[in-house]
Design a protein around this nucleic acid. Structure first.
Lengths: 118, 118
DNA sequence: GGGGTAGTACTACGTCCTGTAGAGAGGTGG
DNA sequence: CCACCTCTCTACAGGACGTAGTACTACCCC
């Protein structure tokens, strides 16, 4: 997988936040802060779809875009990918475990123990 | 933090594998598979140092490069960075926990419980 | 001591990715 | 029929990376 650029991530954030498929125009309206040309938004949406981050379906003449995967799935995948980079996964995991803050450690712990119970 | 390119990562891998600081020439010798010009290796080492991935110390006229952080630390940091991207850290963590394979889940679990005991 | 050798710093260039957008085509509503 | 929306295609600048040449300096061997 590849990382996302600044604008790409902003757009993914918007689409992850809404849970309905949006058209380019709608996305554009939600990025007001940056005064982007409509075609800019369209181009980026297109690239994201091409990269597999979005799927799109027709709605009249327009496309409606929606994330191919949830943000959580994306983040988890990024984390796994980082983990794959190391030769010593155990050491990296241990270090990671130590680095997450207390409340998050508990979340992890809970998820892991629930996993074992199954 | 930024990601690393292909060659940059190869070179970091070499330096992470050796645990002594290496000169450009030594690194170059260890990348034989790719027939690189010595200056190429030097340039990349220089860039890595500039980006903070390596530190270098003089050894006669030559520089000796060594990783600024361990690979595990780097990987853990990448993972945390990915985690920072999400709005819902808990969901991402839960998903991550479910995604790691069994033996790794145990490593994580162990690290986390040891953490609690302290 | 002079030439080869090793090492450095600086510069360069092609390529790919990303942000950004215009141009042109083809419907659609009034 | 005209204005407009949306699409697709094309373009371009800036930055990161892979790759390397050049020019300068210090050192060792004969």
């Amino acid at each position: 997988m590849k990382g996302l650029g600044e604008l790409e991530r902003s757009i993914m954030d918007i689409l992850w936040a809404e849970n309905t498929p949006l058209t380019a125009r709608e996305v554009g309206r939600l990025i007001e802060d940056r005064d982007l040309a409509p075609t800019t938004v369209m181009t980026v949406l297109d690239r994201l779809a091409r990269k597999g981050f979005l799927t799109r379906t027709r709605d009249g003449r327009a496309w409606r875009y929606q994330p191919a995967a949830s943000r959580d799935a994306y983040v988890a995948e990024l984390m796994l990918e980082a983990l794959d980079m190391t030769g010593d996964r155990d050491a990296a995991l241990t270090r990671f475990a130590r680095a997450v803050s207390g409340s998050e450690a508990e979340i992890l712990l809970k998820a892991l123990t629930e996993l074992e119970e199954e």
